[in-house]
């Protein structure tokens, strides 16, 4: 049931045109953060207002939308954004990664490889990768202008000096097409290799910070590293306890107050699909 009181996909047409112009410029300069006039949305900042505005600007009536939060289709953030678009645009929704044409995500890239024709929309809290190193926007803008990214390497070096390795585990900075250093949003660094050379369009929206940026398909995205400390995509050294997968990104779940824990795929659609195919993990119920 579409709420007729609103325009298609909630936003008015003038706002969508503003967003659409910013998205085209973002695609033309991969990795560069385009300022845009972010609107007040009917949800609080931090709940994906940037991603929601980007999705609203891209959505057509024939799209099939998937929304995930940390890989899961069934958490509060994912459910409320999915229902928001069902109410305001009437588009079809799905939990299956392969069936979706637009996937809005908070902090994960689906395990199943994306394909041409799909758009991945990221919700971004802090778009500026240099922000925690240099709080002044005037300075970080100058640093991007001059390609002055030495400070970021110093930060990664300090990680190595303190911990013996780069301890940054999420929002791991990347360099796009050899030019702009970009924050891939707080995805685990396990997902970083999937940013590179993807056949899908990747769009990033930061509502509170009023920035949009993008990666066209088949764009070179390199995680920053050192020759003697090459980038490593890490995950928990376990198999999924429900589907037995040894290569997916895992969540650790505490199951009682005796220290018991289990590891499960963070991508719920991926895990459910594998279980339906008959894969079993350590804690799977016995077959009936």
């Amino acid at each position: 049931m579409t709420d007729q009181a609103y325009n298609f996909a909630y936003l008015d047409e003038q706002t969508k045109r503003m967003l659409r112009r910013a998205l085209l410029k973002a695609l033309a300069v991969p990795g560069y953060q385009v300022p845009f006039a972010s609107r007040e949305m009917p949800m609080p900042y931090g709940w994906g207002t940037g991603g929601v505005q980007v999705t609203a600007a891209c959505l057509t009536p024939v799209d099939r939308l998937k929304v995930i939060d940390q890989g899961a289709d069934d958490t509060t953030n994912a459910v409320s954004i999915r229902r928001f678009f069902q109410r305001t645009s009437g588009v079809a929704v799905t939990e299956a990664t392969a069936e979706a044409t637009i996937i809005q995500t908070r902090h994960r890239i689906p395990e199943q490889p994306l394909s041409e024709g799909q758009i991945l929309v990221y919700q971004v809290p802090i778009p500026e990768p240099l922000r925690f190193l240099e709080p002044r926007e005037t300075e970080t803008r100058k640093m991007h202008e001059l390609e002055e990214y030495g400070l970021m390497h110093v930060k990664l070096y300090e990680d190595i000096a303190r911990h013996g390795e780069v301890s940054t585990a999420y929002a791991y900075p990347v360099k796009v097409e050899g030019r702009y250093v970009m924050d891939p949003s707080p995805i685990p660094k396990f997902d970083n290799p999937k940013l590179n050379d993807s056949p899908a369009i990747q769009l990033f929206g930061a509502g509170r910070e009023c920035r949009i940026y993008a990666l066209p398909p088949f764009t070179k995205v390199v995680s920053l590293d050192f020759d003697d400390h090459p980038f490593q995509a890490s995950k928990a050294e376990h198999n999924c306890d429900l589907c037995g997968c040894g290569t997916s990104y895992l969540d650790e779940v505490i199951t009682d107050d005796q220290g018991s824990r289990m590891f499960v795929c963070s991508d719920t659609d991926f895990c459910a699909t594998r279980q339906a195919e008959g894969h079993r993990g350590r804690l799977s119920p016995e077959a009936a």
């Binding site: 969508k16 659409r20 695609l27 891209c58 758009i119 066209p216 398909p217």
Partner: peptide, 19 residues
Amino acid sequence: DPAPQSAHAFRALLEAMAR
């Protein structure tokens, strides 16, 4: 019908600029 028509048109422009 501006909302759906401009949405379809923009998707063509987005895909064109992306590829």
